[in-house]
Amino acid sequence: MDILLAIAIMALGAVVLGAALGFASIKFKVEGDPLVEKIDAILPQTQCGQCGYPGCKPYAEAIAKGEADINLCPPGGMEGVQRLADLLGREVKPLEAEEKPKQVAIIDENTCIGCTLCIQACPVDAIVGAAKQMHTIIAQQCTGCELCLPPCPVECIHMEVIPETLENWKWKYPVVAIQPVATRPSAEEAA
């Protein structure tokens, strides 16, 4: 009799816990992969495709699946690699490509023929213009991805490094200046 009671109690426990787990799996169901979102939040969203993936989200997905390395994003820089490494517990690796300062695309409006090819290439719709009308770049929206450079048939787009102004100036990390210390007079001088 005792053994039956024990089995019944265990069975009841199993049913209750199973029901709780089943409820939890429906109630707290995770839509999508939260890791992809976290990785995507670190990526700079330039959508430049320099990593070999068509946009930041696909690259984030590839990293999450373990298909891509974390050091393929030049606009994110070494700092981005560092943050990805921290998030994923992977080793920090040097960046594949060289790090560039932040840039903005400029259209030479005298040369532009209004072909709309760059407008189609811009991933963030930062170019305004219409067929046979002059195009121009909305500098605030430009991510500096350089995707508009190759399609231009008259090569009227160039990249410019964003200069330091009073608006984007930052306090520098305090560094201790190394000062030359007087050295002992050398043998020649002493002689």
Binding site: L43, T46, Q47, G55, P123, V124, D125, A126, Q140, Q141
Partner: peptide, 10 residues
Amino acid sequence: KAADEAKQRF
């Protein structure tokens, strides 16, 4: 903020 905006536009 700029990255979020770029993402939204993309």
